[in-house]
Design a protein around this nucleic acid. Structure first.
Lengths: 112, 112
DNA sequence: CAACATGCTACACATAATGTAGCATGAATA
DNA sequence: TATTCATGCTACATTATGTGTAGCATGTTG
């Protein structure tokens, strides 16, 4: 799968708008989950695999390559970790944690 | 594809954590894009299809069903529109617009 | 020099997305 | 009232993505 470089056409959008590249990236299985799990600190490959419950090594490796190319994650001696950009990104979406809990309540109410 | 109800196992996670259900949902092609495009106001099916550049009617319809079931989007006389929850969600991720522009610059610098 | 852990790749199989055609319905027009 | 047109979808074949398991290469530990 081609890496969604901002400024170039990506899945679903030919405009090259950065937000569309980001949506392509985040719209891939486990992208958000990997970033989310790296928030708690650097992790080795197998440690990260463990944090992500069930992710297959194939997919984890693909996603990591994408995230590294796009400068959201970097590989250091201590393992994979978020870059400054990655950290900024995760900080934006951090409130989703609380939001999702409220959402869950609401969905359950309606589903009753 | 099964709709990711918070509280139940979803793609990649058996815990039932709301955030994992959300990541499953947002990790599907065009979920984020649809929400993003509904921000500018309600839209009919074809209008929304148009805003989303290239989305196929098949996929748009699947995503809409999911988003409606999960109370993020609702169907009114004026077309599809965000619910209160959907609006709150989009407000959280709104800063991604600016973030992505900076990110694009940085990625370009490194790619030179 | 075993025995074990880590980081990953290979590959066959299963699932999801795309793209095009077109049908059903309703409103506007001739 | 027959015809045209737009809208909201559905069907379905093709292609692209993701899953799961096995296992290899490398480094480390006893």
């Amino acid at each position: 799968m081609a890496i969604p470089l901002p400024g170039t056409p990506v899945r679903g959008s030919t405009t090259g708008k950065p937000i569309m590249a980001l949506f392509d990236l985040l719209g891939r299985t486990w992208s958000l989950g990997i970033l989310w799990n790296l928030q708690q600190g650097p992790a080795t490959f197998r440690e990260l695999q463990h944090r992500c419950e069930q992710i297959s090594p194939t997919l984890l490796n693909s996603r990591l390559k994408e995230l590294i190319t796009l400068h959201l994650v970097e590989k250091q001696a201590c393992g994979y970790q978020l870059t400054q950009s990655g950290l900024a990104l995760i900080n934006i979406i951090l409130p989703l944690g609380d939001w999702s809990k409220n959402w869950a309540k609401q969905v359950q109410e309606y589903t009753l």
